[in-house]
Amino acid sequence: MHPTPGMMDHLIITTLKRAGITRGQGTIGWHDLRRTYGSHLAMRGVPLKVIQELLGRATIELTMRYAHLRPEVKQDAVKLLDGPVKRHATYAQRDQEAAAQK
């Protein structure tokens, strides 16, 4: 038996009541939890494109709502310039190293 939307709503309402979680107006729903999930991902520095994919958003524009939640992102980006440049091997170098290990 597959859960129906009504069954899922009942599940969240029951769970929130047991946890003592309320909201000033209306009830907390799945959309609220989805937004909270996206917000917490953004605050932890997850790239917006990844958040878009995890939330199943069709466009990045809707996901951009979460971009303001971590203002230090710009500072973190500029601080990267203070560190050493990471050297990335070329494909040819990787192939040579792999062949040498065999």
Rank of each mutant, 00 (worst) to 15 (best):
P3T: 02
P3W: 01
P3K: 00
P3C: 04
T4V: 14
G6Y: 03
M7E: 06
M8K: 09
D9H: 01
D9E: 13
D9L: 14
H10D: 00
L11G: 03
I12M: 01
I12C: 03
T15H: 09
K17H: 08
K17E: 08
R18K: 13
A19T: 03
G20A: 11
G20H: 06
T22D: 00
R23F: 11
R23V: 14
R23L: 14
R23N: 09
Q25E: 03
Q25I: 15
I28W: 04
I28A: 07
I28C: 10
H31Q: 00
D32Y: 11
D32W: 12
L33R: 05
L33A: 08
R34V: 13
R34N: 04
R34Y: 03
R34M: 11
T36L: 11
T36Y: 08
G38Y: 06
G38R: 09
S39E: 00
H40A: 12
M43F: 03
P47K: 01
P47M: 01
L48A: 07
L48K: 01
L48V: 10
K49Y: 09
V50W: 00
I51E: 04
I51W: 03
E53W: 05
L55Q: 06
L55V: 07
L55D: 04
R57H: 14
R57T: 14
A58Q: 06
T59L: 08
T59F: 01
L62Q: 12
L62R: 08
M64A: 14
M64L: 14
R65I: 15
Y66R: 13
Y66T: 15
R70A: 03
P71A: 15
E72T: 14
E72Y: 09
V73S: 03
K74Q: 09
K74T: 15
D76T: 11
A77K: 01
A77I: 07
L80E: 00
L81Q: 05
V85H: 01
V85T: 02
K86T: 08
H88S: 13
H88L: 15
A89E: 05
A89W: 07
T90K: 01
T90C: 06
Y91M: 14
Y91L: 15
A92S: 07
D95F: 13
Q96L: 10
